[in-house]
Amino acid sequence: MEKRIKIDEVEPAGYQAILGLEKFIESTPLTRIHKDLIKIRASQINGCAFCIAMHTKEARKAGESENRIYALSAWRDTPFFTKDERAILALTEEVTLIANHVKDETYNEAVEAVGETYLAQVILAIITINAWNRIGITTQLIPQ
C-alpha cells in the first residue's frame, strides 16, 4: 500500500469535529456491549480492517466473548444476541448500507426495543463509526 495522508495532521479541525462526536457517544448511556457491536458490525460491512482490528480488541478487553465476536457477521443465524442487540444490529446494517434505506419495520423494532432517546444515541453511534470507517479505508490505515 502506498502512503496516504493522515487526516488528523492535514485537517486537524475536521478530525477534531468527528472526534467530538465520538466523545459525545462515549458520554451517553449506550452500553459498552452495544457500542462494540455497532462498531464491529459496521466495520465488517464496510471492510475497514483497521477498525475491525481495533474494535474487536476493545470488545475482548471489555469482556465480549470470542464466540459472539466470531458470529457477529452471521448474527441472525445464532442464538447469541438479545432482542435489543438484534434490533441494534439490524439498524446498524441498514444505516451502513443506506442506499437501501432504513425499513419502517427495522426502525420500529429498534424504537420498541430501546426507546427513542437510546435509539437516537444508537443512530449517532452508527453514523460515527461509518465516518471513521471511511477515513480508515480512504487513507489506508493499517491494522495493528
Rank of each mutant, 00 (worst) to 15 (best):
E2P: 10
K3Q: 13
R4E: 07
K6G: 03
K6S: 13
I7G: 09
D8R: 14
D8L: 03
E9F: 11
E11Q: 12
P12H: 09
G14C: 11
Y15L: 01
Y15F: 15
Q16W: 09
Q16Y: 07
A17K: 13
A17Q: 10
I18E: 04
I18R: 09
L19K: 06
L19N: 11
L21Y: 02
L21R: 01
E22K: 15
K23C: 00
F24A: 13
I25L: 10
S27I: 04
S27F: 05
T28G: 01
P29N: 08
L30V: 03
L30C: 04
T31L: 08
T31I: 03
T31N: 02
R32H: 08
H34F: 01
H34N: 12
H34M: 06
K35T: 14
K35S: 14
D36H: 14
I38F: 12
A42S: 15
Q44T: 00
Q44H: 12
Q44Y: 11
Q44E: 11
I45G: 05
I45T: 09
N46H: 13
C48Y: 08
A53E: 15
T56M: 06
T56G: 08
K57F: 13
A59I: 08
R60M: 14
R60N: 05
R60I: 13
K61G: 07
K61A: 14
K61D: 13
G63T: 04
S65C: 12
E66C: 02
E66F: 08
Y70A: 15
Y70Q: 15
L72A: 09
L72R: 02
S73G: 08
W75S: 03
W75N: 02
W75D: 07
R76C: 01
D77H: 03
F81G: 01
F81W: 03
T82H: 04
T82C: 02
T82R: 07
K83I: 05
D84L: 00
E85W: 04
E85V: 00
R86N: 07
A87N: 07
A87S: 12
L89T: 02
A90E: 14
T92G: 09
E93Y: 04
E93T: 10
E94W: 11
V95T: 10
T96E: 13
T96H: 10
L97H: 05
A99W: 07
A99H: 12
N100W: 03
V102M: 06
E105S: 00
Y107N: 00
A110V: 06
A113T: 03
A113D: 08
A113F: 07
A113L: 02
V114C: 03
V114M: 05
G115V: 00
G115Y: 01
T117W: 01
Y118H: 13
L119P: 05
A120S: 11
A120W: 04
A120R: 14
V122F: 09
L124T: 14
L124I: 14
